[in-house]
Design a protein around this nucleic acid. Sequence first.
DNA 1: CCATCAAGCTTGCATATGCAAGAAAATTGC
DNA 2: GCAATTTTCTTGCATATGCAAGCTTGATGG
Lengths: 148, 148
Amino acid sequence: MTETQTTNALRLLQSADALRAGLAGEFSAVHGLSVNEFFMLLHLERSAKHRLPRVELAKRMHVSASTITRMVAPLEKIGLLGRDADARDARLVFVVLTESGRARLAEAQTTFSKRAGYVFRDRWSDAELAQFSELLQRLLAGVPEPLA
Amino acid sequence: MTETQTTNALRLLQSADALRAGLAGEFSAVHGLSVNEFFMLLHLERSAKHRLPRVELAKRMHVSASTITRMVAPLEKIGLLGRDADARDARLVFVVLTESGRARLAEAQTTFSKRAGYVFRDRWSDAELAQFSELLQRLLAGVPEPLA
DNA sequence: CCATCAAGCTTGCATATGCAAGAAAATTGC
DNA sequence: GCAATTTTCTTGCATATGCAAGCTTGATGG
């Protein structure tokens, strides 16, 4: 039914907005990271050699290439990210997650999990959580390289 | 389980991002509206007298009051929104959805539903859609005045 | 009543982000 | 092998948004 689909899309966007808003404050205050920066580190951590070309990051995060350029700069400056040239293609500039970056990410993931626990704290049985997980995964079928 | 909660939170954010990114392009091209503007019109349409104080809009949309001020201005200029003073409290400036605004919103909702249909087009039975709807509603329990 | 504090809104400044143009390098077509 | 096209990345400009300060109006306490 179209109506249910529309309702679901609205609910999906609203609940994600609420979650993201909750995360944003805690993240910047506690870890000095924006939610988007957190996602960027996460994509890198889960990639081979902890690195990705900028274009690939842009696609996965649904942002423009220029945004990646500008997001990386300050994180590189504080040592969470590094850069790696590709021997075969001089156009490529890999973004690399450093050890320091992995450590920071690990801290942020703790906060993330805590918030996730808070969101699902009430009225959710294990079965429902698993069911929700399954349905969300199905929704992510169209997304290349999902994080989870 | 904490792990499932964390996975669900990640999936929720990623799938919402993907949906929002898909909507954004079509929305601005076809209707001259951003996704956030669409949500603003939607909140107004579903309120008494099609109007809300700016502070209330800010809370519901998880944005700052200044953002509301600046989002409303251009929409007011093109006649989609109007303003209403409160007789009792001169501080309040209601944002009102005009007839023209309702018409524009209706068009945008068609696009929204089409996109929602696209997202859920495959592999989703009616039962699964209903189940997902139920779980998302539960997630929205903590959100005051959800849109759906 | 007046003084103080709180609430709603707007504005200045800083940051974030997209688009379009440009630079450098790789690929394609002939 | 060279010109034209495509790809990757960066930069200039415009828009979007948050925070803090300021303004106006209400509420509160004495």
